[in-house]
Nucleic acid binder design. Structure first.
Lengths: 196, 196, 196, 196
DNA sequence: ATCTAAGCGAGACGGTACGTCCTGTCTTGAG
DNA sequence: CTCAAGACAGGACGTACCGTCTCGCTTAGAT
């Protein structure tokens, strides 16, 4: 049972802080996010922010989890098409909105800090990667993908090259996406081949 | 031609600063790197650091470029084996030394800032990814890989899933590496398959 | 009505800063006063000093206003004697304590900057020069000085030569003081004389 | 005999530095004068300035000594008129050009530092106060002033109140000057009066 | 005709201080 | 107990000057 004594929290405060954080993440990136600026923009004092989030990483995780939409898993009847749609949607939502560097920085910040990595996985990542799992699961059921296909591997093969291309090249075109999804498809569907 | 006028820079200063920066990157990560701390540890004043590097991102790029070894391209005679060796070496050098988050954060910081992205590509990335290009080029010559294989795509298919697995799972095992390299190999060698 | 919201300032901080400033003014002069050193000596951080004083000039004005004693106006019954006592006291308090150069530098710094000149006049100067005004007013009432004597002029005739002698000669003896006060007395009491 | 070996100093350098220093003293005051800025404005490097002047105080003394004109001693035949002319000229040259605070700050900086006070007295002050000595000497010879009049005292009685009024009031009018010169005249010419 | 010394531009260097920003915490008064 | 307000210790930022130094080049008088 929660303790209901004392003045209750204002309902508007939380969302106002999260909105302010998102705006600042978009404008200045993860490195440019500061609790101070968030508080000012949300019309709130710093201790009020700290009362709800312990530091800017947790705040950023919550802000992103709330602001980045979770795409519905496409279901066209053809798994390969579904993966193409998925990948284009992913790129649209992150690269084209400029949030990709924010999410990368946040991941980088979280590596080795389980108190961050946990929430990041559970709140941000899992719901979004669930879409891939859904498509893969359906693909197996439909016979488009081999029965033993691991959703985690599929996720890495699909998202990994896309992320890496964006990271290294700085940008990514629709043709890039198609090329890399096709490659992932081959990796998922081709029979294992020996060395010789 | 270099300008020889003026008091020459002390030869020890540059390396001392880079060493200090590397130590701090290892200890505190990219976010924990501060010019102040670098200067103190290098036994140098802050303005001396700023005389040589405009900000911590440029400094980190130089420090990493100098400290992270460039692996020789393996050449066992079998391209698939070479790629396995390459991948394990990469993971050893970055994930196991804890530098992976640093490099990710640096990349995230550089996206959209060409004055950073350029040096990062040229100084850090290109020499290291050259190893992949070498192996792929040799693989094509040897007939292990199809003639049209693009080194850039090979790079993304190989490194992308490894990086992504590390990013999302927080760690990566030798078995993971083998699994993902095999998948990349299938993507590179399987014939393109239409959906129908 | 003062604003009582917010964490109240620590009562010890202000005096500690002013004490530190006074010590440094005595040791290093106005030019040698630095906010940094004041903060260190007061056991306080630099931002804490800046929260209370905008720059070293304002700080010096407050420090001097608090530290330099305001002499009681002498009242022996004889105005000329009073002025002698006044002048000797002035010289003792400023020249002999080494504060004279500090006050001069502060005045020089304030000329033409009304945001400094104002506080300097009101906080430091007015209370101290009030003593002269008192003596002059009493002197007029007593008949020792002509009825129209202006306190401002009396102030300039008395203090001016003393200051100037100190400034130009670097030091000032008791005999100097007596000589210059006598001269001021003649200027105040002699009837106006024509040119011829 | 001076050593004439070595490359001789460029003749233009000294004056260029002094001109630059004067400009900066006028623009930013004594506190705002920096060797760095002087060097830049004179088109010279910092070590070149330091080769000729040990610090900004010595530089300022030389710059002022060269730039502030030495008035010719007025000689109208009437000493009191001469003193009025002298005082108005003094005020015009210092207060109205804004150099008064600079000279005060320089004096304040020099108190207790004989290596500065000496040059300041000899180079700046003596030639300029010589005018007063001349007028006083002539006044004694002419019988306008008592035979025992000390030029040093005359100087303090004349200049002191003017300086002090400027210092305390921030400005000084022509009427102020006349009033204070008349007072100084009374001090110099009235017979000594005991208090009783 | 060299040699040698100094002047000078250039710019690095260790240092000190600047004034600002942000962190995370604490302390008050009011709701 | 929440919240606004704001002080506080602490730490870092990036910049400005300080006074010194070490170079390469130039300019001259001394040898």
């Amino acid at each position: 049972m929660v303790d209901r004594r004392g003045r209750p929290r204002r309902a508007e405060t939380g969302p106002a802080i999260l909105d302010a954080a998102m705006e600042l993440l978009r404008e200045a990136g993860y490195g440019g996010l500061s609790i101070e600026a968030v508080a000012v923009r949300a019309g709130v004092t710093r201790p009020t922010v700290y009362r709800r989030w312990p530091d800017k990483a947790h705040l950023a995780i919550d802000a992103l989890s709330r602001a980045v939409p979770i795409a519905a898993a496409p279901d066209t009847g053809d798994t390969r098409t579904d993966l193409h749609l998925l990948a284009h949607g992913l790129v649209d939502r992150l690269v084209r909105t400029g949030l990709a560097p924010v999410i990368l920085a946040l991941h980088a910040d979280s590596i080795g800090r389980e108190e961050l990595a946990g929430p990041l996985r559970e709140l941000y990542l899992r719901p979004r990667l669930g879409t891939i799992t859904d498509v893969v699961t359906r693909g197996i059921a439909r016979g488009d993908l081999p029965p033993g296909t691991s959703p985690a591997t599929a996720r890495d093969l699909l998202a990994g090259p896309l992320v890496y291309r964006g990271l290294v090249a700085g940008d990514i075109t629709d043709a890039d996406v198609d090329e890399l999804v096709d490659a992932a498809w081959r990796a998922l569907t081709a029979p294992a081949s020996g060395t010789g």
